[in-house]
Design a protein around this nucleic acid. Structure first.
Length: 571
RNA sequence: CGGGGCGUAGCGCAGCUUGGUAGCGCGCACGGUUCGGGACCGUGAGGUCGGAGGUUCGAAUCCUCUCGCCCCGACCA
């Protein structure tokens, strides 16, 4: 491509609405433009990157035996009604009415559609296993789109669905997809962790998220520094934390203290001054779980894992009680609730009950108790209900957990027969008896990954694409107003093109500074600079985007040097 | 959904408090000088001041409503 003919609208200043690095750079470097909140255009450069990513995904999916197909985005509502998701999905589902008043929606995911296909066409165990995938637009009316391509209402997703004869076979398919995802994420140049995740209330027996590590990620995950263990904090098993030093003490008599204006743990700690710290207090939160109201107690420096709490209680979700509900259930105000004197069901985290002589709300405004001890002063069901935190011991080895932020780049599930049962997607086995097809589903947020890669690969000057996903592998930059550099650059460009290299020739009549700045901004991995100075000595310069220094290469070997450098970057 | 911020030229912004016929930088077009890390000089094009209504002789500016975008939060006491 000749730069002078390319549609690459770069910006010196970032539009003020962009804050995340990937968002700013995609706009500045001319990869994308916004059309509405969470709705973007991918410009030619962005489209090239998209195609590169898609190609890697297709190669690996095809190698794993999956077959690509294309399902509709605009679908009748009947399928979602069959499985109940027409109601369950809520406002996130973009619903459309056609001219006859028929109910339709834009697909946020395709389990129902693909299951319908399977029930119509798959009749025999001989047709299984089967894995179908597509790369296509998805629609979700997100409550809050953000971060450019990181969370959009319209986005590109690779979704695959596996169909098997049994649970064991489905797990095999799942494991194969996990291996495939490892290869894909590695080829994309991403630093990522596979983490245990919530499989959701629906179906999921087993699931894992592929989390791309980035400070700007929306998810919190913990990963062990010495083994493979990693999990979303929603589901991370927290080992027992080291108890506070003071916990060795003998139990002291319970003491009620007037503590005005101490609604938060922070305020309580500062009220008691040097006497205590957050790890020595108990945090007591009242939750509504279905019909029941119960008190969750964790150590003051810990957080309740609401998902874990809900799982323990066997409910879909728990909701923190409102101020009014707290008043009604405990007779006291938020901030002064505690396990002592609470009459309902109490669940306490093991780390919380390990604290001796703790400070906790007195369930009476405005008082706290000192020297609260589990067993003597209150009785609770002891269950792990806190979120894992940085520094916690690893549950599967003797390492410690680190906290990271992640961008969910992929998610794989064993679905079981959740959808096939509801939609009667069955097959006949060798004996002629009928069974529900056992399914799995596997998603990759393709457009999100464009942004995720930039989050991991950029510097203050611009993007630094890994070679496998770069829109062009090399940019050739003739410098100066003489004819010679452009002529030589064109020669090198043609040579590279003849060898199938995606090259960009910056044939614009811009000053050198402009060309260099744009090249850095676009993030093309290799740059050949052709200047009249070098030409006199028969050399051109080869520079990698991630290196500070360039090196001279004989001008007639330029194309070979580029190919060698590409090979090095690709390995 | 709650809170905060912002809508003035393609991008970044000033002007608004104290109403008086809209300005700066970048970018763009043309001419000239420049030419190895976002050059300089000159000339020029480009704006229903997000939209609607109101107050006023007069509204970017004041009032009301509305639309859009961004950020934080969505209840950890």
């Amino acid at each position: 491509m000749r730069y002078s003919r390319a549609f690459i609208p770069t910006l010196k200043e970032a539009p003020k609405d962009a804050t995340m690095p990937s968002h700013v750079l995609m706009l500045r470097a001319g990869y994308a433009r916004m059309v509405g909140a969470g709705i973007y255009e991918l410009l030619p450069l962005g489209t090239r990157v998209l195609h590169r990513i898609e190609r890697i995904i297709r190669e690996e999916m095809d190698a794993a035996g999956a077959q690509e197909l294309l399902m509709p985005t605009f679908v009748p509502g009947d399928y979602f009604k069959e499985t109940g998701r027409w109601d369950l999905y809520g406002p996130t589902l973009l619903r459309i009415e056609d001219r006859k008043g028929g109910e339709y929606h834009l697909a946020p995911t395709h389990e129902e559609i693909v299951t319908d296909l399977a029930r119509r066409e798959v009749k025999s165990y001989r047709q299984l296993p089967l894995n179908l995938y597509q790369i296509q637009l998805k629609y979700r009316d997100e409550p809050r789109p953000r971060g450019g391509l990181l969370r959009c209402r319209e986005f590109i997703m690779k979704d695959a669905y596996s169909f098997d004869v049994s649970e064991e076979a489905a797990v095999q398919s799942y494991e194969q997809m996990r291996d495939t995802y490892h290869r894909i994420f590695t080829r994309l140049g991403l630093e990522y962790r596979v983490v245990e995740a919530d499989s959701g209330a629906i179906g999921g027996k087993q699931s894992a998220e592929f989390q791309v590590l980035a400070q700007t990620g929306e998810d919190w995950i913990v990963a062990c520094s010495s083994c493979d263990y990693a999990a979303n904090v929603e589901v991370a098993k927290a080992g027992l934390a080291a108890p506070p030093a003071s916990s060795a003490a003998e139990p002291q008599p319970l003491e009620k203290v007037e503590t005005p204006e101490t609604r938060s743990i922070e305020e309580v700690v500062s009220f008691f001054g040097g006497e205590t710290n957050a790890a020595h207090t108990l945090k007591s939160l009242l939750y509504v779980a279905g019909e029941e109201v119960c008190l969750a107690v964790v150590r003051g420096d810990h957080e309740v894992n609401e998902l874990g709490l809900a799982r323990h209680l066997g409910v879909e979700e728990v909701v923190l009680a409102s101020d009014a509900a707290v008043k009604e259930a405990t007779g006291t105000e938020i901030g002064f609730v505690g396990p002592v004197g609470f009459s309902g069901r109490i669940l306490a985290d093991p780390d919380a009950v390990a604290v001796r002589n703790a400070i906790a709300g007195a369930t009476e405004t405005p008082y706290h108790y000192k020297n609260v001890n589990h067993g003597r002063d209150f009785k609770a069901e002891v269950v792990p209900i806190r979120q894992a935190a940085s520094g916690d011991p690893c549950p599967s080895c003797d390492g410690t957990l680190e906290l990271y932020r992640g961008i969910e780049g992929g998610h794989i599930f064993v679905l079981g027969t959740h959808y096939s049962d509801k939609m009667q997607a069955t097959f006949l086995d060798e004996e002629g008896s009928s069974h529900s097809i056992v399914m799995g589903c596997y998603g990759i947020g393709v457009s999100r990954l464009i942004a995720a890669i930039i989050e991991q690969h950029h510097d203050e000057d611009g993007i630094r694409w890994p070679i496998h996903v770069a829109p062009f592998q090399v940019i050739i930059t003739p410098i100066g107003k003489d004819e010679a550099p452009l002529a030589k650059a064109t020669e090198i460009y043609e040579a590279l093109r003849a060898q199938g290299v995606d090259a960009l020739l910056d044939d614009r009549s811009e000053r050198p500074g402009v060309k260099f700045k744009d090249a850095d901004l676009l993030g093309i991995p290799l740059r050949i600079t052709v200047g009249s100075r070098g030409l006199k000595q028969g050399t051109v310069e080869l520079k990698e985007r991630t290196q500070n220094e360039s090196r001279d290469v004989p001008m007639d070997d330029a194309a070979d040097a580029v190919r060698d450098a590409m090979a090095a970057l690709q390995s």
